[in-house]
């Protein structure tokens, strides 16, 4: 079996969901996996990631984020220990570091896999291309193989690993590009790419004053993430960081609830790999209904308030 390293992520000293996901994938593919965590409080997260199979947890303390430095440290680790496959979440960080890791290793990277398997020692993946209008199957020919995995696309398994901690060094000196400040998004909501449920609003919500009552309040009842279409963002109703679609975020939740969204192909590109899709739209001909598990053809302003009441009852709130 090929030797696999999963690249986890931590935020605010906590293990991120993506770390559990990539570690679970590694364990499932090869029967054993090690995980590297870099950031402030890395060693403290070792026991958590070991629950998903991590044998060795490499912990690198770093006072600040640097894609440049993280990639160098991870590439050095891969070389040193002879890993053949490196699994990275396709997150902002993962996209920043994966190509750099592969370049340092003289190898190649495959991005945003939604399906992954082994063909002998080689990784084989599938991923959507052309806004989800086709899928491509790719295989790594070079070694080590670096693969990024779409967040939320793979099951998280609980299967304990040894979780023995080894420290690694991250050198933050002499950087070409250096982070001088960082500001976290002012929200207590789960990140939209990690959320199990996403509630998203389109032009059908009619105005910015309705985004709170029709989208955010319903999302908060379910502990869901919040998104919007490009039309809503371009109209200035919500911040563009909420945009889901071709020029926004790609999400892959268990449940995607599209409220007042017609389903332009650019939007579908960002949510088409969701497991279940619900559409609430008064236009029965809206393309979103073609991909929906459940469709409600009615006025969202009459549907959502009742849903909120039902959800309160369901969650005992």
């Amino acid at each position: 079996m090929p030797k696999i390293l999963a690249v986890g992520e931590i935020g605010g000293g906590q293990l991120k969901k993506a770390s559990r996901e990539v570690t679970s994938v590694g364990k499932k593919l090869a029967g054993s996996v090690d995980t590297v965590l870099i950031g402030s409080g890395a060693a403290g997260c070792a026991a958590e990631v070991a629950k998903h199979g991590a044998g060795v947890v490499y912990a690198g303390e770093a006072a600040e984020y640097s894609g440049e430095a993280y990639a160098k440290a991870i590439a050095a680790l891969v070389k040193d220990k002879g890993y053949e496959i490196v699994l990275v979440p396709h997150s902002w960080t993962g996209r920043d570091i994966s190509s750099r890791i592969a370049t340092h290793l003289g190898s190649a990277v495959i991005s945003d896999a939604t399906e992954i398997s082994l063909d002998g020692d080689k990784v084989k993946i599938k991923k959507p291309v052309y806004s989800g209008k086709a899928y491509v199957e790719l295989k790594c020919k070079a070694t080590p193989q670096v693969v990024t995995i779409r967040p939320n696309s793979q099951p998280i398994a609980e299967e304990a690993g040894a979780g023995s901690v080894e420290n690694i060094t991250v050198d933050l000196s002499g950087l070409k590009a250096k982070q001088v400040s960082y500001s976290a998004q002012a929200t207590n909501r789960v990140s939209v790419t990690e959320a199990d449920i996403v509630v998203s609003g389109g032009r059908g919500i009619k105005g910015p004053e309705n985004f709170g009552p029709m989208i955010e309040e319903m999302a908060d009842l379910m502990g869901a993430g919040v998104g919007a279409t490009r039309a809503v963002v371009d109209a200035g109703w919500v911040d563009h960081t909420l945009q889901i679609g071709q020029t926004g975020q790609t999400v892959s939740p268990n449940l995607y609830i599209a409220v007042g969204i017609s389903g332009a192909i650019q939007h579908m590109a960002g949510m088409g790999s969701s497991k279940y899709i619900v559409a609430i739209n008064k236009d029965a001909d809206a393309p979103i209904f073609k991909v929906s598990t459940f469709g409600v053809v009615d006025d969202l302003f009459n549907v959502v308030p009742v849903m909120k009441e039902e959800l309160k009852t369901h969650y005992g709130k």
Partner: peptide, 29 residues
């Protein structure tokens, strides 16, 4: 360094259904 094995159409989504109901409230429930 990457081999393109091939392209395929997207997997078909399982058929969905429209939620029936006399009015919006019933459908929401």
């Amino acid at each position: 360094r990457i081999e393109v094995v091939g392209f395929e159409p997207p997997p078909p989504r399982p058929a969905g259904r429209v939620i029936d109901g006399a009015d919006a409230a019933e459908k929401a429930k």
